[in-house]
Each structure stands twice: as C-alpha cells, then as structure tokens.
Design a binder for these strands. Structure first.
Lengths: 229, 229
DNA sequence: TCTGTCAAGTGGCCTGACCAGTCAGAATTG
DNA sequence: CAATTCTGACTGGTCAGGCCACTTGACAGA
C-alpha cells in the first residue's frame, strides 16, 4: 500500500499559486511591489530560476507587472480583467454547472446513440486507468462532461456547458485539481461517481443520470469549498 | 546621434510570440509535439532557461500542454464561438431556458435586495398595463426575466440567461408573439404566471419561485409547439 | 508470446555567474 | 547653497552546465 504522491506539482506552479493566494487575500495589495526574485528564492528555499518561472507565469496570467531593473508589482484589478469574462469565481461556475449539467445528463440518457455510448465508456476507461496510477486526468474529466453535453440533443445547452468548462480552465488551471489529485480517496470517489453516471446514461435512465450528476457536482463543489477556506 | 533600440523586448517574449505565430500559421498543428527545450535553445541561439520561460508562458496562456518526461504539445483548438446561431431552434432555446431559469428564479428569491424588488414590481406593472390594452409587451417580458437573472447572485448564470434571450430575439422577432398576441386568454394566463412568479420572489420563497418559473416556461413552450405543428 | 529491464530522451530544478537597466544618494561643480 | 554629475547598490534578463525524476520503447529473458 504505497502512499506516494508526495507532491507531483511543479514547483513554479506551487509558488505562483502561493503568491496568487497572497494577492487574493490582500497581503499584497494592488500597486505594491513584490519581494525581489533573489529574496523570494531565499525565503521559499528554491532557486532563482524557479522563482522567475513563477513570476513569468503570474505576468502572463495578468496578475502582476514586471518592470525591468525595478521589480514586480501587483496589477490593479481593473486592468487585470481585460480578458472577456474571466472574473467568474470557480465556485460560481460550479454552481452554474450544478444547475445545467444534471439536466444535460438526463437529456443525454434519452438522446445518446450507440456510438456515443462507446466513446463515453472509452473516456471512462481512460479515467479509471489514470486514477489507478494515483493521478487525476483533467482531460478525461473534461471529455466526459463535454461528451454528454454534445449528445444531449440541445445545442444551446451544449454551448453553455462548453463555455462553462472553458471559463473553468482559465480560472483554476491546475490549482484545484492538483490539490485534489493528492488525495487518493477523493480520486476514487470521483471515479465512482463518474462510473455511476455513465452507467445511468448507458442504461437510458434519465432520472438516475440527473441524480448522479448532481451528486457528483455537489461533492466536487464541497471539496472546492473546503480547499479554499 | 546613435540609433540604438536594437530590441528592448524580452527574449522569452520574442520566442513565445514566434512559436505562437507558428501555431497560428499551422506549422505546428494541434496535438503535434514541439521540439525539445534543448533543441529549441540551440536552433534559436539562446539558452535553455530562456526557452523554458517561453514554454511556461505559452502553457499559462493555454496554447500548449507540457507533459513531464515527454515534451510540449500544441493544445486542441476549441472555439465554440461560431456565428451561425440560426440552427438553434426556438424550441431548443426554450428547453434550455426551462433548465436554467427556474433555478435562477430560486436564487433570485434568495439573493435579491429591496431595490431589486421595486424594479421588478415596476416591470410587472408595465406588463399588466400593456396586457390590459390587449397587447403583448415583449420588452417588459425580457426585462422581467433578465432582472431576475441579474439579481441571482451568480454571474455565469446571468450571462447564460442574457445570451439565451439574445438568441431568442434573433429567432422569433415577432413571429410567435404575433400569433400569441391575438389570443387574449393566453395573454392573461402569462400575466398571471408572471405575477405569481414576482410575488414568490418578493416573498423570498425560492421553491415557489422555481415552480412558478417552470410552470410559466412549460406553458410558453407548449404554446410554441402548438403554433408550429 | 509475454514480461521485466534498461538506456535514451525529456522536462524539472539547481548553482553560480555576468550583463543591463534603474534610482537614490554621494560627490562634484556652478 | 543649488544644480549637476557620478557612483554604486539594487533590480530583472540571460547564460552555462549539471543533476535528477519521469516516460517511453527497444530488447533480452522467461
């Protein structure tokens, strides 16, 4: 019973997340200067290149602005959200998904064709394999949910689900999943929920599909809430 | 008069831009593997850390995906934003609204403030007046539903409702409403449903609000089905 | 045929160094 | 004394070379 998974997360992502938290919590306020790369490296116990990578990630993400020879500064929130609709909190997006996706699952159970079932089970199989290795496959997760949406027989709903997932990825690329991925029990729970969901759809049981999806999303929502409180 | 300004741009930004161009131009196709960091460094005549920084920037930007021990890959382009919204049938849009709006109404009943109540009742009043004259006010209808969405406390859901209404207007400007407007009994029924809905929200009764909205949309959906069969 | 091993290649991370902007304050000059 | 210049201690930008962990596929052994 190996209990590995010490920390698969890349260091620069961890550091970027940490700084993101500090900014979000107000420890670093807009306009304020961050410690220098060398100072951060020493305090965090990592090398300067690694800190640099985190800084660059934050700059690309639009959270900070780097001035050569001066330092890195927290950007004002107004200029931060110049990209279209990216200030949706992950929890809000989860709430929206809890409204839409259960019904989408029910519709998929009614309208999905035999070919769709095969694809769905294939994705589930991939997910099972990844989970068996103690890893989380965000790609499989995404494929599974979008697959249901694409076969629900309602194009507007399909586009809504796609949009929610795109926004979701902007928000928490890695952040939550890497937290979640460290907990084997969470992984297995989610896999079981997905399995139940896929079986319900393949058995053309819309009520059970709806309930399974709601159960799954509620669980994930709860995990996300815990992770950030 | 020296004419310097060779290139103030940071190297890793130049490299990231260059790769972005190549991806955009199709030289690197989705799913394809990029050259290794070492190879890129050599070909571009820069150091590996610099290439790494560019790679990380592209990863954060969502253009590529980096797999440890394997390489960097161009991500699949998934842009659902296509122009032709015309293949969204009005009935499909109604179905989508039936999924989303009841829950939006329930949330609005929980989160709407006193100021929101006033606006809501004002819109309802306008609608009642129009109906009394035997006319249908699409403007009031739209305002009422969007007002609920704006006060549901969930920005993604709000945007979804707005988008559905925008698509709806493209679809049936006049067509259905003119048919419906000729039947006084239909007008009065819809007014009564709206009134019940607004009262439920103002009484902070989410369950009743949800039910009222569902009842209302089901009725409209039924009328639309009849009109086109 | 199947299985386990292992070497090559990849990204992740480190040490240590030099360069080029920036800016405040010391030194110089009027 | 005031204005100017100069200096040096910061900052981030870049480089070189190296070690490690992971992934993969070929290959030898069962």
């Amino acid at each position: 019973m190996p209990f590995q998974t010490v920390s698969n997360r890349k260091l620069y992502v961890q550091i970027a997340d940490q700084i993101t938290d500090l900014i979000g919590r107000g420890e670093f306020k807009p306009g304020q200067q961050l410690p220098s790369e060398r100072e951060l490296a020493q305090k965090l116990g990592v090398s300067r290149p690694t800190v640099r990578e985190a800084i660059i990630a934050l700059e690309i993400a639009g959270l900070i602005e780097v001035r050569v020879g001066v330092g890195a500064f927290v950007r004002e929130r107004r200029e931060m959200s110049k990209l279209p609709a990216s200030d949706h909190s992950p929890l809000e997006i989860m709430q929206a998904r809890m409204v839409v996706e259960p019904e989408v699952a029910a519709l998929a159970a009614l309208n999905m064709t035999g070919q769709g079932f095969v694809a769905l089970k294939s994705v589930l199989s991939d997910m099972k394999e990844e989970t068996g290795r103690g890893r989380w496959s965000q790609e499989s997760d995404r494929k599974l949910h979008l697959n249901l949406a694409e076969h629900c027989g309602n194009q507007p709903l399909n586009e809504i689900v796609h949009r929610l997932w795109d926004e979701r990825e902007e928000e928490l690329s890695g952040r939550f999943h890497q937290h979640m991925g460290s907990l084997a029990v969470v992984l297995k729970t989610i896999l079981r929920q997905h399995t139940k969901l896929v079986e319900a759809v393949c058995n053309r049981d819309p009520a059970l599909a709806r309930m399974s999806m709601h159960e799954h999303l509620s669980y994930v929502h709860g995990q996300m809430s815990e992770a950030w409180e």
